[in-house]
Amino acid sequence: MSQIHSDDGRAEQTEVRCVLMRGGTSKALFFHEADVPPPGPARDRLLKRAMGTPDVLQIDGMGGSRLVTSKVAIIRRSERADADVDYTFAQVDVDRDLVGYDANCGNISSAVAPFAIDEGLVAVTEPVTTVRIHNTNTGTLLVSRVQVQGGKARVLGDCAIAGVPGTGAEILMDYTDTIGAKTGRLLATGSVVDTLTLRDGRRIDVSVVDAATPCVFIAAASLGLTGSELPPAISADRALIETIGEIQGRAGAQIGLYKSWDQMHLPGLPLAVIVAPPADYADVNQAPVAAGDCDLRARLVFLGQCHDSMAGTGSMCTAAASRIPGTLVHQAIGERSAGTSTLRIGHPLGVMEVKVVARAGATPAQTAFEALGLTRTARRLMAGTVCVPVE
């Protein structure tokens, strides 16, 4: 870090080296761990100030006033024998003075290997470099396969993903080693379906699954929804958001993340995923999505807002849940889709395909996965320094 001084010699701002990267349908500031303070209040202040948090517009920072553009990745060479780099993810809230480290972000994970390659943190082989990523938030290992040319991660290609204009070089992300990422169990409660009783007496069936990140799955109909609602409508319905928050809190307490349901904290695990069987709907750009083009419809809610598309880790957990007999996700997709090697998730920006190959166990909880992954693209957008005012 370097400092910018005023005319009288006082340091007014600190410059911190960073790279702005898009990973999948999210964006983040990428830092070398050596360039930021150690974990604690000083690091949190730096990240919040760099993003411009708390402020709904994040006008005095690099954030884009949306949760998907208010993210941070902190990278270093790993000392583990089974990993090449360590990656810490931070979710910086927008209008609240908060930073969360409890979970990983699948979309940002897809940019970790390209960053590590371009920054010289890993050995490069062409045409494909495999990078083993230790996610410190969950303690899990991810494997990323990146196309390389001239010693750098390729950018151009013919891979298209819903929610990102154009095409890019394909990045293959393997999440097979992330089962039980937070709780140590695929079925976090031990059951395929649990019934939660809310404060108002309503009883809501849920499935709580932990793969890549723990998620609580809720049938759209049980919330009075069709499953085709879009983020603005869901986020604006505060009664609905409060109900979903209570469901998250109660599920989180049940699996040991909180002492009581009303003590849920950032980033609000388990993530809430509203699921419904396939049906025709229009995405946020008013483009039609046909029922035959997806295996289920899904809307993900975290931090009191509906995700603009679908979280990468959320998609992994949804895919895993779809192969566990009896879960609400399995019920939504039906038997036909359950026998395929991909899950097509209809989300607010279109349809994403997830690779999932499962092997049945003696019980649903013993379902094993031979493949669990997704295809993403990533791109380095800007490199330089971010200026943070001195306290």
Score class of each variant (00 low, 15 high):
Met1Glu: 08
Ile4Glu: 09
Ile4Pro: 11
Asp8Pro: 00
Gln13Ala: 15
Thr14Gln: 14
Arg17Gly: 10
Cys18Thr: 14
Cys18Val: 12
Leu20Glu: 08
Pro37Gly: 03
Pro39Ser: 10
Ala42His: 14
Ala50Ser: 06
Leu57Arg: 12
Gly61Ile: 03
Ser65Gly: 05
Val68Ala: 13
Ser70Tyr: 05
Ser70Asp: 10
Val72Gly: 08
Val72Ala: 08
Ile75Gly: 09
Arg77Asn: 13
Arg80Val: 13
Asp97Arg: 00
Leu98Gly: 10
Val99Leu: 05
Asp102Val: 14
Asp102Arg: 13
Asp102Met: 14
Ala103Arg: 09
Ser110Ile: 03
Ala111Thr: 07
Phe115Thr: 00
Phe115Ser: 01
Ile117Asn: 04
Ile117Pro: 01
Asn135Cys: 13
Asn135Leu: 12
Thr138Trp: 00
Thr140Ser: 09
Val143Ser: 14
Val146Ser: 05
Val148Arg: 08
Val155Gly: 11
Val164Asp: 01
Ile171Asp: 06
Leu172Ser: 14
Asp174Thr: 02
Tyr175Ile: 03
Thr176Val: 11
Thr178Trp: 10
Ala181Trp: 01
Lys182Leu: 14
Thr183Asp: 05
Leu186Trp: 12
Leu187Phe: 07
Ala188Ile: 02
Thr189Cys: 07
Thr189Lys: 07
Leu198Ala: 11
Asp200Leu: 03
Val206Lys: 00
Ser207Gly: 04
Val208Lys: 07
Thr213Arg: 11
Pro214Leu: 06
Ile218Pro: 09
Ser222Tyr: 04
Thr226Met: 14
Leu240Asp: 04
Thr243Met: 02
Glu246Trp: 03
Arg250Gln: 14
Ala251Met: 07
Gly252His: 04
Gln254Cys: 12
Gln254Ser: 14
Tyr258Met: 08
Ser260Arg: 08
Gln263Lys: 03
Met264Glu: 15
Leu266Ala: 15
Ile274Asn: 01
Pro277Val: 11
Ala279Tyr: 08
Ala282Cys: 13
Ala291Glu: 05
Leu296Ser: 00
Leu296Lys: 03
Arg297Ile: 08
Val301Ile: 14
Gly304Gln: 02
Ser309Asp: 07
Ser309Met: 12
Met310Asn: 02
Met316Cys: 02
Ala319Arg: 11
Ile324Thr: 05
Pro325Glu: 10
Val329Gln: 07
Val329Tyr: 06
Thr342His: 13
Thr342Ser: 10
Ile345Pro: 00
Val357Gln: 10
Ala360Tyr: 12
Glu370Ala: 15
Ala371Ile: 09
Leu372Asn: 06
Leu372Cys: 08
Met382Val: 04
Gly384Pro: 02
Thr385Cys: 12
Val386Lys: 06
Val388Ile: 07
Glu391Ala: 15
